[in-house]
Write a protein that binds this DNA or RNA. Sequence first.
DNA 1: AAGACATATTCTTTAAGGAGGATATAAAAG
DNA 2: CTTTTATATCCTCCTTAAAGAATATGTCTT
Lengths: 112, 112
Amino acid sequence: MIETLQALAEPNRFHIVELLREGPRPVGDMVHRLGLRQPQVSKHLRVLSDAGLVDVRVDAQRRIYALRPAPLKELEVWIATYRRIWEGNFQRLDSVLEGLKAKEKKRGRTSR
Amino acid sequence: MIETLQALAEPNRFHIVELLREGPRPVGDMVHRLGLRQPQVSKHLRVLSDAGLVDVRVDAQRRIYALRPAPLKELEVWIATYRRIWEGNFQRLDSVLEGLKAKEKKRGRTSR
DNA sequence: AAGACATATTCTTTAAGGAGGATATAAAAG
DNA sequence: CTTTTATATCCTCCTTAAAGAATATGTCTT
Protein backbone atom coordinates (compact mmCIF):
# COMPACT_ATOMS: atom_id res chain seq x y z
CA MET A 1 0.00 0.00 0.00
CA ILE A 2 2.69 2.47 1.02
CA GLU A 3 4.86 1.12 -1.76
CA THR A 4 2.08 1.72 -4.25
CA LEU A 5 1.69 5.28 -3.05
CA GLN A 6 5.41 5.93 -3.20
CA ALA A 7 5.59 4.62 -6.73
CA LEU A 8 2.70 6.79 -7.88
CA ALA A 9 3.84 9.89 -6.02
CA GLU A 10 6.66 10.57 -8.46
CA PRO A 11 5.37 12.76 -11.32
CA ASN A 12 7.13 10.90 -14.12
CA ARG A 13 5.95 7.55 -12.85
CA PHE A 14 2.46 8.89 -12.48
CA HIS A 15 2.68 10.00 -16.07
CA ILE A 16 3.87 6.56 -17.13
CA VAL A 17 0.91 4.97 -15.43
CA GLU A 18 -1.39 7.40 -17.18
CA LEU A 19 0.20 6.45 -20.49
CA LEU A 20 -0.21 2.78 -19.80
CA ARG A 21 -3.87 3.30 -19.14
CA GLU A 22 -4.35 3.49 -22.89
CA GLY A 23 -2.76 0.11 -23.27
CA PRO A 24 0.55 -1.74 -23.09
CA ARG A 25 3.55 -0.01 -24.59
CA PRO A 26 7.23 -0.63 -25.24
CA VAL A 27 9.83 1.48 -23.47
CA GLY A 28 10.92 3.40 -26.54
CA ASP A 29 7.44 4.64 -27.13
CA MET A 30 7.23 6.06 -23.63
CA VAL A 31 10.64 7.64 -24.02
CA HIS A 32 9.29 9.68 -26.92
CA ARG A 33 6.06 10.63 -25.25
CA LEU A 34 7.58 11.59 -21.95
CA GLY A 35 10.55 13.50 -23.25
CA LEU A 36 12.77 11.63 -20.82
CA ARG A 37 15.87 9.64 -21.61
CA GLN A 38 15.75 5.96 -21.93
CA PRO A 39 17.67 5.07 -18.79
CA GLN A 40 15.39 7.20 -16.64
CA VAL A 41 12.32 5.61 -18.08
CA SER A 42 13.75 2.15 -17.50
CA LYS A 43 14.57 3.08 -13.95
CA HIS A 44 11.11 4.38 -13.24
CA LEU A 45 9.65 1.29 -14.80
CA ARG A 46 11.80 -0.74 -12.48
CA VAL A 47 10.27 0.99 -9.49
CA LEU A 48 6.79 0.52 -10.85
CA SER A 49 7.56 -3.11 -11.50
CA ASP A 50 8.88 -3.66 -8.00
CA ALA A 51 5.71 -2.12 -6.67
CA GLY A 52 3.73 -4.58 -8.77
CA LEU A 53 2.12 -1.81 -10.75
CA VAL A 54 3.36 -2.97 -14.13
CA ASP A 55 4.08 -6.17 -15.92
CA VAL A 56 6.66 -6.88 -18.61
CA ARG A 57 6.31 -9.00 -21.68
CA VAL A 58 9.32 -9.62 -23.85
CA ASP A 59 8.90 -9.12 -27.57
CA ALA A 60 12.23 -9.62 -29.29
CA GLN A 61 14.48 -6.71 -28.29
CA ARG A 62 11.69 -4.76 -26.76
CA ARG A 63 9.84 -5.04 -23.52
CA ILE A 64 6.17 -4.37 -23.52
CA TYR A 65 4.94 -2.90 -20.26
CA ALA A 66 1.35 -3.14 -19.12
CA LEU A 67 -0.57 -2.01 -16.09
CA ARG A 68 -1.32 -4.49 -13.35
CA PRO A 69 -4.69 -3.79 -11.77
CA ALA A 70 -4.06 -5.40 -8.38
CA PRO A 71 -2.33 -2.54 -6.54
CA LEU A 72 -4.75 0.07 -7.83
CA LYS A 73 -7.60 -2.12 -6.82
CA GLU A 74 -6.15 -2.43 -3.35
CA LEU A 75 -5.76 1.32 -3.16
CA GLU A 76 -9.33 1.82 -4.19
CA VAL A 77 -10.53 -0.56 -1.51
CA TRP A 78 -8.52 1.30 1.08
CA ILE A 79 -10.00 4.64 0.09
CA ALA A 80 -13.45 3.15 0.07
CA THR A 81 -13.13 2.43 3.77
CA TYR A 82 -12.95 6.19 4.25
CA ARG A 83 -16.20 6.76 2.54
CA ARG A 84 -18.16 6.51 5.75
CA ILE A 85 -16.23 9.54 6.91
CA TRP A 86 -17.74 11.78 4.31
CA GLU A 87 -21.05 10.01 4.17
CA GLY A 88 -21.96 9.43 7.80
CA ASN A 89 -21.23 12.57 9.75
CA PHE A 90 -19.09 10.96 12.38
CA GLN A 91 -18.40 14.25 14.07
CA ARG A 92 -18.82 12.98 17.60
CA LEU A 93 -15.87 15.19 18.21
CA ASP A 94 -16.82 16.41 21.63
CA SER A 95 -17.05 13.00 23.20
CA VAL A 96 -13.62 12.18 21.88
CA LEU A 97 -12.14 15.33 23.25
CA GLU A 98 -13.77 14.97 26.61
CA GLY A 99 -12.41 11.49 26.95
CA LEU A 100 -8.90 12.52 26.08
CA LYS A 101 -8.17 14.68 29.04
CA ALA A 102 -9.80 13.17 32.10
CA LYS A 103 -7.95 15.54 34.39
CA GLU A 104 -9.75 18.53 33.03
CA LYS A 105 -12.55 19.25 35.47
CA LYS A 106 -15.17 21.53 34.06
CA ARG A 107 -14.54 24.67 32.02
CA GLY A 108 -17.80 24.68 30.13
CA ARG A 109 -16.93 26.87 27.14
CA THR A 110 -15.45 24.97 24.23
CA SER A 111 -13.64 27.79 22.47
CA ARG A 112 -11.65 30.09 24.72
CA MET B 1 -3.42 14.72 -7.05
CA ILE B 2 0.34 14.24 -7.06
CA GLU B 3 0.51 16.31 -3.92
CA THR B 4 -2.04 14.06 -2.27
CA LEU B 5 -0.04 10.99 -3.21
CA GLN B 6 3.19 12.49 -1.97
CA ALA B 7 1.60 13.38 1.33
CA LEU B 8 0.21 9.89 1.81
CA ALA B 9 3.33 8.10 0.65
CA GLU B 10 5.22 8.86 3.83
CA PRO B 11 4.60 6.10 6.39
CA ASN B 12 4.16 8.37 9.39
CA ARG B 13 1.77 10.62 7.54
CA PHE B 14 -0.15 7.63 6.33
CA HIS B 15 -0.39 6.54 9.93
CA ILE B 16 -1.65 9.95 10.97
CA VAL B 17 -4.35 9.79 8.36
CA GLU B 18 -5.32 6.37 9.62
CA LEU B 19 -5.55 7.76 13.13
CA LEU B 20 -7.69 10.64 12.02
CA ARG B 21 -10.09 8.25 10.42
CA GLU B 22 -11.42 7.52 13.88
CA GLY B 23 -12.14 11.18 14.38
CA PRO B 24 -10.51 14.58 14.96
CA ARG B 25 -7.61 14.66 17.39
CA PRO B 26 -5.24 17.17 18.97
CA VAL B 27 -1.54 16.97 18.21
CA GLY B 28 -0.51 15.73 21.63
CA ASP B 29 -2.74 12.73 21.33
CA MET B 30 -1.13 11.71 18.07
CA VAL B 31 2.31 12.22 19.55
CA HIS B 32 1.53 9.56 22.12
CA ARG B 33 -0.03 7.12 19.73
CA LEU B 34 2.63 7.43 17.07
CA GLY B 35 5.64 7.35 19.34
CA LEU B 36 7.06 10.31 17.48
CA ARG B 37 8.17 13.61 18.91
CA GLN B 38 5.97 16.62 18.81
CA PRO B 39 7.94 18.64 16.25
CA GLN B 40 7.90 15.75 13.80
CA VAL B 41 4.20 15.31 14.16
CA SER B 42 3.62 19.01 13.68
CA LYS B 43 5.78 18.96 10.61
CA HIS B 44 3.96 16.05 9.09
CA LEU B 45 0.67 17.71 9.89
CA ARG B 46 1.92 20.75 8.07
CA VAL B 47 2.51 18.72 4.95
CA LEU B 48 -0.88 17.09 5.24
CA SER B 49 -2.44 20.48 5.75
CA ASP B 50 -0.71 21.95 2.72
CA ALA B 51 -2.00 19.03 0.69
CA GLY B 52 -5.48 19.82 1.93
CA LEU B 53 -5.80 16.47 3.62
CA VAL B 54 -6.43 17.85 7.08
CA ASP B 55 -8.12 20.75 8.70
CA VAL B 56 -7.26 22.56 11.91
CA ARG B 57 -9.56 23.89 14.55
CA VAL B 58 -8.15 25.92 17.39
CA ASP B 59 -9.26 24.97 20.88
CA ALA B 60 -7.37 27.11 23.41
CA GLN B 61 -3.72 26.04 23.29
CA ARG B 62 -4.41 22.98 21.28
CA ARG B 63 -5.12 22.41 17.64
CA ILE B 64 -7.63 19.82 16.68
CA TYR B 65 -6.87 18.17 13.38
CA ALA B 66 -9.50 16.49 11.27
CA LEU B 67 -9.54 14.73 7.93
CA ARG B 68 -10.72 16.59 4.90
CA PRO B 69 -12.53 14.27 2.49
CA ALA B 70 -11.97 16.22 -0.72
CA PRO B 71 -8.51 14.95 -1.72
CA LEU B 72 -9.33 11.35 -0.92
CA LYS B 73 -12.50 11.69 -2.90
CA GLU B 74 -10.55 13.03 -5.82
CA LEU B 75 -8.12 10.16 -5.56
CA GLU B 76 -10.94 7.68 -5.53
CA VAL B 77 -12.44 9.23 -8.63
CA TRP B 78 -9.10 9.01 -10.38
CA ILE B 79 -8.69 5.36 -9.56
CA ALA B 80 -12.23 4.68 -10.63
CA THR B 81 -11.35 5.81 -14.14
CA TYR B 82 -8.99 2.85 -14.24
CA ARG B 83 -11.70 0.40 -13.48
CA ARG B 84 -12.46 -0.19 -17.11
CA ILE B 85 -8.95 -1.53 -17.40
CA TRP B 86 -9.61 -4.44 -15.15
CA GLU B 87 -13.22 -4.83 -16.10
CA GLY B 88 -13.26 -4.51 -19.86
CA ASN B 89 -10.38 -6.54 -21.26
CA PHE B 90 -8.90 -3.78 -23.31
CA GLN B 91 -6.05 -5.95 -24.48
CA ARG B 92 -6.12 -4.84 -28.08
CA LEU B 93 -2.42 -4.92 -27.64
CA ASP B 94 -1.54 -6.12 -31.11
CA SER B 95 -3.19 -3.26 -32.90
CA VAL B 96 -1.33 -0.82 -30.71
CA LEU B 97 1.97 -2.47 -31.38
CA GLU B 98 1.42 -2.69 -35.09
CA GLY B 99 0.59 0.97 -35.23
CA LEU B 100 3.70 1.95 -33.36
CA LYS B 101 6.28 0.89 -35.83
CA ALA B 102 4.98 1.52 -39.30
CA LYS B 103 8.33 0.82 -40.83
CA GLU B 104 8.22 -2.81 -39.79
CA LYS B 105 7.03 -4.70 -42.85
CA LYS B 106 5.78 -8.14 -42.02
CA ARG B 107 7.41 -10.61 -39.64
CA GLY B 108 4.29 -12.51 -38.73
CA ARG B 109 5.30 -14.22 -35.46
CA THR B 110 4.54 -12.13 -32.39
CA SER B 111 6.96 -13.66 -29.93
CA ARG B 112 10.44 -14.34 -31.26
C1' DA C 1 29.93 -12.40 -38.33
C1' DA C 2 29.13 -7.21 -38.19
C1' DG C 3 26.49 -3.49 -37.32
C1' DA C 4 22.19 -1.45 -35.68
C1' DC C 5 18.59 -1.22 -32.34
C1' DA C 6 16.14 -1.63 -27.77
C1' DT C 7 16.60 -1.87 -23.09
C1' DA C 8 18.85 -2.56 -18.57
C1' DT C 9 22.42 -1.55 -15.30
C1' DT C 10 26.20 0.82 -12.98
C1' DC C 11 28.42 4.86 -11.12
C1' DT C 12 28.52 9.60 -9.86
C1' DT C 13 26.48 13.84 -8.70
C1' DT C 14 22.93 16.50 -6.71
C1' DA C 15 18.72 17.81 -4.63
C1' DA C 16 14.65 16.83 -1.52
C1' DG C 17 12.95 15.51 2.59
C1' DG C 18 12.85 13.43 7.16
C1' DA C 19 14.90 13.32 11.95
C1' DG C 20 16.90 15.66 16.12
C1' DG C 21 17.35 19.34 19.02
C1' DA C 22 16.57 23.93 20.54
C1' DT C 23 13.64 27.65 20.70
C1' DA C 24 9.62 30.78 19.85
C1' DT C 25 4.68 31.73 20.56
C1' DA C 26 0.40 31.65 22.74
C1' DA C 27 -2.93 30.46 26.00
C1' DA C 28 -4.17 28.66 30.84
C1' DA C 29 -3.52 28.13 35.53
C1' DG C 30 -1.91 29.57 39.86
C1' DC D 1 2.97 38.14 36.52
C1' DT D 2 5.15 33.76 36.57
C1' DT D 3 4.89 29.12 35.34
C1' DT D 4 3.12 25.37 32.83
C1' DT D 5 1.05 23.30 28.80
C1' DA D 6 0.41 22.79 23.74
C1' DT D 7 2.05 23.53 19.39
C1' DA D 8 4.80 25.56 15.65
C1' DT D 9 9.11 26.95 13.59
C1' DC D 10 14.12 27.13 12.72
C1' DC D 11 18.56 25.06 11.81
C1' DT D 12 21.61 21.28 11.06
C1' DC D 13 22.60 16.58 9.79
C1' DC D 14 21.86 12.55 7.19
C1' DT D 15 19.55 9.47 4.15
C1' DT D 16 16.97 8.63 0.09
C1' DA D 17 16.17 9.04 -4.43
C1' DA D 18 16.21 11.29 -8.97
C1' DA D 19 19.04 12.87 -12.97
C1' DG D 20 23.08 12.31 -16.17
C1' DA D 21 26.41 9.85 -18.58
C1' DA D 22 28.62 5.79 -19.91
C1' DT D 23 28.40 1.08 -20.69
C1' DA D 24 26.72 -3.72 -20.86
C1' DT D 25 23.40 -7.19 -22.73
C1' DG D 26 20.77 -9.22 -26.04
C1' DT D 27 18.35 -9.53 -30.45
C1' DC D 28 17.49 -8.42 -35.14
C1' DT D 29 19.09 -7.48 -39.88
C1' DT D 30 21.97 -8.20 -43.67
